[in-house]
């Protein structure tokens, strides 16, 4: 059963140096506050998994928490580049960053395999691209029934999945609605999970299209209103588009980024 705790406590208990973490949320419900708590607790040597490492991972990479990134699209959505990610890849600052690069279809299927308890996933993907040449976790496989050549990608089984959701009840059942991305798969693929929520309520009333992660599939729930900012939580908040643009300036230079971390995160 999930324990309802503070975010600091959840990160302290679940996230360790050297862990593989998946912070998921596809533009909607990005667990940004949890990412900043990891920076505050100065975790190091993390392997960060995420389909779209946007601002949340730019912050973790710039703060020196990451050793490796497993991803499929790394940009500031609607704005441009991720400067801290680029600086790490191009110049090794603040530390060299190993990358393992896939497509969205490949990453989504890797989570599905992980959630399904299978060693790998099969998809019709990557054919003709240069990705298999640079990513050792993309292989070819022959269908035993038709002989068709397909792509195989290994399951993702992170140590900890971290997501943000609209709400949970006091028993730790989690309710998510709107664009649900790959969060359910990430939680079920991982050994442990932290879910930050907008609010903890007495009872989860039904919402059209909502999914529920039962309490026994979740490790920690932490109430963090606005924990997805600058992304949004449908029904609670709107996306702060201005912040995404402001991030471009904050992150562009090392010193502006470092003063932002000291001022906004390490306090």
């Amino acid at each position: 059963m999930a324990e309802v705790v503070s975010l600091a406590e959840a990160v302290r208990s679940a996230v360790h140096d050297g862990d593989t973490l998946a912070l998921e949320g596809f533009t909607h419900l990005i667990p940004v506050a949890a990412g900043q708590e990891i920076i505050r607790q100065r975790r190091r040597d993390l392997t960060l998994v995420r389909m779209t490492p946007d601002i949340v991972y730019d912050q973790l990479i710039g703060a020196g928490c990451a050793r490796k990134l497993i991803f499929s699209w790394g940009g500031n959505p609607g704005v441009g580049s991720l400067h801290r990610f680029r600086d790490a890849v191009q110049n090794g600052w603040p530390a060299p960053l190993e990358v393992e690069e896939h497509s969205h279809a490949g990453m989504a299927n890797r989570y599905v395999a992980g959630a399904s308890g299978l060693p790998f996933a099969v998809l019709r993907g990557y054919a003709g691209t240069d990705l298999p040449g640079v990513t050792s976790t993309i292989k070819q496989i022959t269908c035993p029934f038709t002989g068709e050549e397909l792509a195989a990608v290994p399951a993702l089984n992170p140590d900890v999945a971290i997501i943000h959701a609209q709400r949970a009840d006091r028993a730790g059942n989690v309710q998510i609605w709107g664009l649900v991305g790959v969060q359910k798969e990430a939680v079920l693929a991982s050994a442990h999970s932290i879910v930050t929520v907008e609010e903890v309520v007495d009872e989860l009333t039904p919402v059209p299209g909502a999914i529920v992660l039962p309490s026994w599939a979740v490790t920690y729930v932490a109430e963090v209103p606005g924990g997805a900012h600058p992304s949004y939580a449908q029904g609670y908040s709107d996306r702060d588009n201005t912040y995404y643009q402001a991030w471009d300036a904050i992150s562009r230079e090392r010193d502006t980024f470092e003063s932002w971390v000291s001022r906004e995160v390490l306090v």
């Binding site: 699209w73 890849v89 191009q90 497509s103 969205h104 019709r124």
Partner: peptide
């Protein structure tokens, strides 16, 4: 890389 771009996203399978 001279310039690290965002990467593949959904495009490889969209194109295929």
């Amino acid at each position: 890389p001279k310039v690290r771009l965002p990467g593949a996203g959904g495009a490889p399978e969209i194109a295929a």
